[in-house]
Design a protein around this nucleic acid. Sequence first.
DNA 1: CTTGGCACTCGGACGGCGAGAGTGCCAGCA
DNA 2: TGCTGGCACTCTCGCCGTCCGAGTGCCAAG
Lengths: 343, 343
Amino acid sequence: MSEDRRLRVLRAIVQDYVETSEPVGSKALLERHQLGVSAATVRNDMAALEEEGLIAAPHTSAGRIPTDAGYRVFVDRLSQVKPMTAAEQRAIGHFLEGALDLDDVVDRTVRLLASLTRQVAVVQYPSLSRSSVRHVELVPIGGPRLLVVLITTTGRVEQRVVDVGTDLMTVEGESTLAVLRSELNGATAGRTLADASAELAVVPDRLEPGLRDVARAVVAALEDSLVEEREERVVLAGTANLVRSGGDFVASIGPVLEALEEHVVLLKLLGTVAEQGGSLAVRIGSENPYAGLRSTSMVATGYGAGTDLVAGLGVVGPTRMDYPSTMAAVRAVATYVSRILAD
Amino acid sequence: MSEDRRLRVLRAIVQDYVETSEPVGSKALLERHQLGVSAATVRNDMAALEEEGLIAAPHTSAGRIPTDAGYRVFVDRLSQVKPMTAAEQRAIGHFLEGALDLDDVVDRTVRLLASLTRQVAVVQYPSLSRSSVRHVELVPIGGPRLLVVLITTTGRVEQRVVDVGTDLMTVEGESTLAVLRSELNGATAGRTLADASAELAVVPDRLEPGLRDVARAVVAALEDSLVEEREERVVLAGTANLVRSGGDFVASIGPVLEALEEHVVLLKLLGTVAEQGGSLAVRIGSENPYAGLRSTSMVATGYGAGTDLVAGLGVVGPTRMDYPSTMAAVRAVATYVSRILAD
DNA sequence: CTTGGCACTCGGACGGCGAGAGTGCCAGCA
DNA sequence: TGCTGGCACTCTCGCCGTCCGAGTGCCAAG
């Protein structure tokens, strides 16, 4: 019994099941694929595959469906990411070109990904801790309050109101701020906040005593913006696709929607992806650490301006999804967004 | 046949149907409400109510369910918004107090509203056109590009990259910017962008000729940020509640999810609400102009810092919802958010 | 105007039945 | 040793007839 043919059978089962949403039997398989063997042989192979835990039968007189492990083998060994057509590529580029600012880029990206894959798309905002600082601005906004604005090379703008204890809306206040401003920019420009942390810490000490408290408050605010939960944002689109996905999956969308609303969960998932280097990550069904997402798979990858990855994006859908196309779309979109952000 | 009792019957039907999700018959009504009349009388009243189009029978041998018109009468004449308990009020205040910045306020608000009402919550970001300008900042970000940052009194920060044609990252560039900066702030500070529009338009003419093109580009960017579609943002939470809402409603969540993703639609709905003055707006089922939301009701109101309303918030749920509690929650949350924003 | 009574309707649950799909196993063959 | 055709077996699913009960509309009497 050739291992090779058994895997071809598995591939055929996955493909058919993805297409029809129904358990596939030996006969149906022969009709749609040229396997060159008889139904009985296929049945033997199926029995073996079931033994290995790659497929399962919902009940005696139904066909087989792939298990999570089956999809895993399919993704790892039996499928290749199918390239996007030139037309699709053009469409992606064209759609993303028109974006006005970072919000718009992220918004367009997530919608595009959702409509390309017909699944729920997830896009993380470029992370602050992994982006470089372009500029720090200080704006007095009345009384002792100061608005600290942080602009990154990816175009993300983060702001925070700080109470500095002294009223700075005065003439000498303005010159004070100018000093502080240039110190801060000197300490941070061009590097990530995390990298600049040490330099930032000593900024207050380099200033005249009267300014130190102000400086300390501002530096604290900048450091604070790195705290994981606060700094990360994630955007969704295409949740309606969950309903359309058909099959018995629809019954379990409740927990899935809940999990998707827990942005922290999504960030964790995207985070591990962005770290583990370039290529696509696929997390299938029960491989997923979060209970609500046990019936789904996630296909994700990192993206970013230039060579560093600054965030992750991907899609979430039923484990019965068209992995090759989905993977192609995720990869293509990530490539294009990265290109756009590089400007 | 007293009109009065007929309405009491309608109220009882609405209450029971909301609670049980099942058509309610004359007998069940008598068991759960002290109407002081016989089943036959109730049946007569029901027939009359059906005649008036306020209730309907799904089929012959089932009870009645309220029509959209029936809910309308219930909301307008038969229910009063039931006040939140002191404990609930404290919880709301406490939960919102902790917010760090505007994003956080909006985020907490929408989650709070979703969990209070067990429905989909919708919160619009404070609108730019209706907020006052606190400060305009200009930051050169390399080459001929300038980042224009707009900060409103509600704490919202909007940024836009502008190509001004000249490289401003020079010494004289910086002083140029200082002039422009103070002109812009002089023209806008303390009023809404819309109000400042006329003043802004003449700013370029007051400057030396070499600066005019730069100034025009910046002013155009500011005006541009008012364009409706771009300026408005809306945030959702609690979509998972749609699934839990039970009854036959679950079948139609597909179109509802789609409609909810069309933020433009939600903004239109919230927009009309915020305009029409203080109190709560309730839009029931087919009163809704958008096909996807025909099976839902929306309860919404405006909120804002001080006396002006700057945005809307509300919830979307099945027409069969507990209107009195929902309305109470929406109103209470709006009140508290407004209070927080006033700081 | 209300009430009790009564005949009527209809949807949903239940159970039996047959068809069809799919399987496992076996014996024969290369 | 591995493939194949055949065959008996097992389930699920859909269909149909039946039954039950909830709920109604109407009527005649109070």
